[in-house]
Every structure is written in structure tokens, then in C-alpha cells.
Design a protein around this nucleic acid. Sequence first.
DNA 1: GCTTGGCTGTGAAAAAATTAACAATGTTAA
DNA 2: TTAACATTGTTAATTTTTTCACAGCCAAGC
Lengths: 206, 206
Amino acid sequence: MPDQISEKTIARLCLYKRILGELEVSGVETIYSHELASRAGLTAAQLRRDIMAVGYFGSPTKGYEIAGLQHSIRVFLEGKNTGTSAVVGVGNIGRAILAYMGLETSSVHITACFDQDPAKIGSVIYGCRCYSLDELSYRCNQYNIQSAILAVPAGVAQLVAEKLVSCNIRGIMNFAPIQLQVPENVFVENINLAVTLEKVHYFARK
Amino acid sequence: MPDQISEKTIARLCLYKRILGELEVSGVETIYSHELASRAGLTAAQLRRDIMAVGYFGSPTKGYEIAGLQHSIRVFLEGKNTGTSAVVGVGNIGRAILAYMGLETSSVHITACFDQDPAKIGSVIYGCRCYSLDELSYRCNQYNIQSAILAVPAGVAQLVAEKLVSCNIRGIMNFAPIQLQVPENVFVENINLAVTLEKVHYFARK
DNA sequence: GCTTGGCTGTGAAAAAATTAACAATGTTAA
DNA sequence: TTAACATTGTTAATTTTTTCACAGCCAAGC
């Protein structure tokens, strides 16, 4: 891993990893760049370029070994470290994420969820125990939580985000439609479903 | 609207529109490019460049008029036409989207939802009536549905997508973790929550 | 009335991302 | 053995996106 790998490349590597996992289950052993690229909705050139980043080498005649490539990407993305993630705010979105991630086979484990509603605290939601936000710090240590899915109402999102940061969480998947103010060493991915739908709707009419 | 406006610019315009709507409610009248950019998490230069696309002009001393700019973006994005959208597949994700969009004030109306589960068909879910997929074509005409939020299991996503296309839907927000095969005049936005979480988790450790 | 100052609009420059192109490779088939 | 072929890895070219930088503007202060 020589120089800076772009965020887009990282995102695509995550996607390749997932697809390779599916292929492995279905018993395929090798795959050509254009085949894998097609499954990812990308071009072969781009895929090969991305794979340069992880330092894996395919064969000009067989293509890529599924297991080998998957392993290389995994090592590159995960390293030795493997913390977990948590859902913060168990409303509609939070619950949907918990249910979805329970089904999907992801390398990122969601080990806990947090809410302030006493009716939820202590219950198990889609296999995940719900804790009070007051316990955030303690549970982050207990479960080695390094990233969070922030799905609280917009009005309290900034406050909760600061709490996350103070608990040493350095990655936030933010569903609240506001721009979080966080230190620059904290990575924030904003997911604004209303805005995305609007974009899709725009292009539906083009 | 002279030449080609990029997808990224469209996405940002949608975001500006939303922020301007909030500002309008809070009674602000004008705003400078750097202020609006900051709320969007972008640079002032980029915002000004985006605004070139919609053909609105601010004042060097007052900045942008909230109402005027919002109107220009709205006209640019929506034109005269205003179809609606629908949720297809009312599982956990589908329900969460319905609940979320019911709260959020979006210019895109979700007028119907579809499922194949007889227990859901006929019921009203978060204010939205649920129809059988067999009625898709009829209801698309009735409600002028132009885009869809596809939240069905991966196994049937391709089949359902083809049905959407045959009903003249030209924009799909796809939550199924597969690459949909659709004609090139159909816009697809893939939302892969598991992959996105993995990316966030990666950067949380950098 | 003049000057100052901060902002917009935009061409030009820079940076980033994607695509093209091709030498090197190694397997297959004749 | 040798020729043909499809694919990889990688450099170079291209395209796209972002940022810079500054002329022009207009209100405010003197």
C-alpha cells in the first residue's frame, strides 16, 4: 500500500469483497476482471486499477483466484484490527438497519444499540441488546466499538455525535439530515435518503 | 441550462434546496455562499459553481435571497412535471423509508407502496396504502408514479425491477445488494448499507 | 463623491478519477 | 516447437471535478 488510496477505491474494494464472498459460496474458483467488474457495475479497467492498491496479482490466463483476491482485500481493508459498530437511536431507521445487518453477512459486527427511551433499554432488538446512552462509554470499551450508525432525530444529532466522539468513535454513518460538526480525524458519511430520492426522481424524468 | 449538468451537481442542488427550505422557515432572508456551503459541508467555490447551473444571480453585497434561489433551484430540478414515487417491498427497510419520508418534508411524494404479502395488501402503512404487485401498472398510471424505492429481497429484485421498467418507471433507488440489469434510459442509484458501513468502519481506524 | 471592503460570477489552473492502450504473460492448439 | 490468443498490470492520456484567483459590483463610511 504505497501512497494514498482514495475513498472511492476503498468503497469499491468493499463491494468487491462482498461479491467475492457470494461467488465463493456458489463454488466458483476464478474470475476475470471483466466478469467481476460487470457484477459490480463497473469497467474492467477500473477494477484492475483498484486491485493494484491491494497488491494482489492475477494470472493472465486464469484471471483472479476468488479466495486469494478476497483474502488480499480483506487483509488490506481490515488489517489486524477488528472493532465493532453500534446503532445509536433505535427508531424506524435504526431498527431497519439492525434487521438488515442481521440478515446480511457483513464483516462489520453490530454489537450493541443505544436509545434514550426507557421502554427500549434492556430489550433485545433484532438480536442486539439496547443500552442507555449513559452507558455509551462503558459499552464502547466492552465491545470495542469503533464506528456508529447515527439514526437519532436531527434535533439531537449534533449532541449525540459529540458524545460518540468523546467515546473515541472515529467513524459515523449519519442518517440525520444535518451537517455534523466533528474533529477532522472523525470520518462522517452522510446518508440523506430524502435528498437521494429527489436525485433519483430528477433523473427518472430526464 | 446550457450543457450537461453532472450527477454530483444535481445531488448537491437537491441538498441546497432542502437547506434553503429550512432557512426559509427560520425566517432568514439572505445568505452568503460560504454560509450556505458550510451548512452543506462544501466549499463556497463549489456552491457558486453549482448555482451557475440554475441561472440564479445573487448580489455581491447581500448574497443570495433565500426565496429566490430556492425557487430557481426548484424550477430547475422539477420543471413543470411532478410525478410521484412508490415504495416497492414493505419489509424493514421499506417500512423505515415510509416512516422517514412521512416525517421529512420532501418535494417527492410517495403515493403508494407495494408488496406481495396478502397480510399487508390493503392496509395503510405509515399513511401509505399497500397494493399487490399485480396492480403495479394500474396504480402507476393512477398516481403518476415515475420513480421507485426498491426494497425487496435480493433474490427477486431483478424480476421486480423489470416489472417496474415495464410500467415506465425510469428511476430506481435500489436497496437490494445486486447490480440490476436495466435499459440504459433507467437511472439506478444503488444503496448498499452493508458496504457503506464497511467503508465507514475502515476510515474509523485510519 | 470617493474610497474601502467583502462578495459574486467565472475563466483558468489544478487535482482527481476514469479510460485507453499496450507490453508481458502463460496456456492452448496445431 | 511455435503461433495465436485472451488476459493481466501499468503507464499514459483523457475526462471530470474541484479549487483558485481576480475582475466587477455595490453598499457603507467618511
